[in-house]
Design a protein around this nucleic acid. Structure first.
Length: 271
DNA sequence: ACTGGCTCCTGAGGGC
DNA sequence: TGCCCTCAGGAGCCAG
C-alpha cells in the first residue's frame, strides 16, 4: 500500500481533474471492503461538486458540497481516472462517474474502503481522533519523538509506524528512515537519545519528501491517478534487499521480524 | 498503559 | 504441472 507518499501522489494527480467536477453516478460493484461503501448513502452525493481534494495521514478526503468522502487505499488499493465507458478490470470495486470521466477504485486485497462523513466534524471523526501529527509538518520533531518514547520498551520501528505517534510512515519508509539515521529497528524506543531522534525525524521528512517527488514507490501494482507507476523503488537503500551488501559498508543486510513486519537493516551501520 | 499477536483478503513466488 | 506454504505497501481488535 500506499504509504503517505503514494496517497499524496494520488491526490496531486487527481486534484486538477476532480476539483470543480460534479459527481453524476456511483456504482458499488463489490461492497465487502474493510470500510464497506454504503451505496445508498453515497448516492446522496450525486449532483454535488468536488470542492477540494485533501489528504490526512493515509486517507484521501474528497470534499463535496455538504459531506466529505473519505477513501483509504488499504494495502493494495489505487484510484485511476479513465474516460467514461473504459472497460473495467477485476477488483475494480467502486466507480465514481464525473461526466466524461470515471474514477475507479481498484483494490485486490480489499483492505481499504469508503466512509462518508460530515465535513465540519471531521477532526472528531473516529478515524481521525487519535491520529498523530503529519510527518511533514513542523509538529514532527526529534524532541516530540523523544518525549513520547520515554519509558517505552517497544522497538523504535513499530513505534514510528504507530499512527497515534506519527501518521503516514509505513513499513517501506520506516525501514529506510532507520537505515538513513543509523538506528537499529529493534532498539527500544525509550533507549534512544534526543540527538538521535533529531536525526530520525529529519530522515523521515527527507525520505517521504523525496518519495513524493518521485511519484511514490511501486513494488507490485501501485499506480497514480493516471495509471502510472512511481519511481522511488529504485532509490530504496535496504527495503526488500536482505542478504545483499549494505550500500554503505558492504556487509550483508539482515532481516528481522518486528510486530509481524519484516525489517531489513545493517547490523554494522545501525546501532 | 503497553505490547505482541491475530485478523481481514487476494495473488505472487518458491520449494517439492 | 500442480499443490502447499509464506509473504506482501495497513491497521483495528484482543488478551495478557
Amino acid at each position: 500500500m500506499p504509504e503517505l507518499p503514494e496517497v499524496e501522489t494520488t491526490r496531486r494527480g487527481l486534484a486538477p481533474h476532480l476539483t470543480g467536477a460534479t459527481l453524476s453516478e456511483i456504482h458499488v460493484r463489490q461492497a465487502r471492503l474493510r470500510h464497506p461503501p454504503d451505496a445508498t448513502a453515497l448516492s446522496t452525493l450525486c449532483g454535488q461538486t468536488v470542492r477540494a481534494l485533501e489528504r490526512r495521514a493515509k486517507y484521501l478526503l474528497m470534499h463535496f458540497d455538504t459531506r466529505t468522502l473519505i477513501v483509504h487505499l488499504g494495502m493494495s488499493g489505487s484510484l485511476r481516472l479513465l474516460p467514461e465507458g473504459e472497460p473495467l478490470r477485476p477488483h475494480d470495486h467502486v466507480v465514481l462517474g464525473f461526466g466524461p470521466q470515471q474514477l475507479v477504485y481498484h483494490d485486490p486485497r480489499r483492505f481499504g474502503g469508503f466512509v462518508l462523513a460530515h465535513t465540519e466534524s471531521l477532526p472528531d471523526h473516529a478515524l481521525f481522533r487519535h491520529l498523530g501529527p503529519e510527518p511533514l509538518s513542523d509538529a514532527l520533531t526529534g524532541d516530540y519523538l523523544y518525549r513520547l518514547s520515554r519509558g517505552r520498551r517497544q522497538g523504535v520501528k513499530p513505534f514510528i509506524m504507530d499512527q497515534r505517534i506519527v501518521v503516514g510512515v509505513g513499513n517501506i519508509y520506516a525501514t529506510e528512515a532507520l537505515f538513513s539515521s543509523g538506528i537499529r529497528p529493534d532498539r527500544p524506543a525509550g533507549r534512544i537519545s534526543r540527538t538521535r531522534y533529531d536525526c530520525l525525524a529529519q530522515a523521515i521528512k527527507a525520505i517521504l519528501s523525496a518519495a513524493i517527488e518521485q511519484g511514490g514507490t511501486t513494488l507490485r501494482d501501485f499506480v497514480n491517478g493516471h495509471g502510472k507507476p512511481g519511481y522511488f523503488a529504485q532509490t530504496l537503500q535496504v527495503y526488500g534487499r536482505e542478504g545483499t551488501p549494505c550500500p554503505a559498508c558492504q556487509r550483508p543486510l539482515r532481516l528481522l521480524r518486528l510486530g509481524g513486519r519484516s525489517s531489513v537493516f545493517c547490523a554494522s551501520c545501525q546501532r
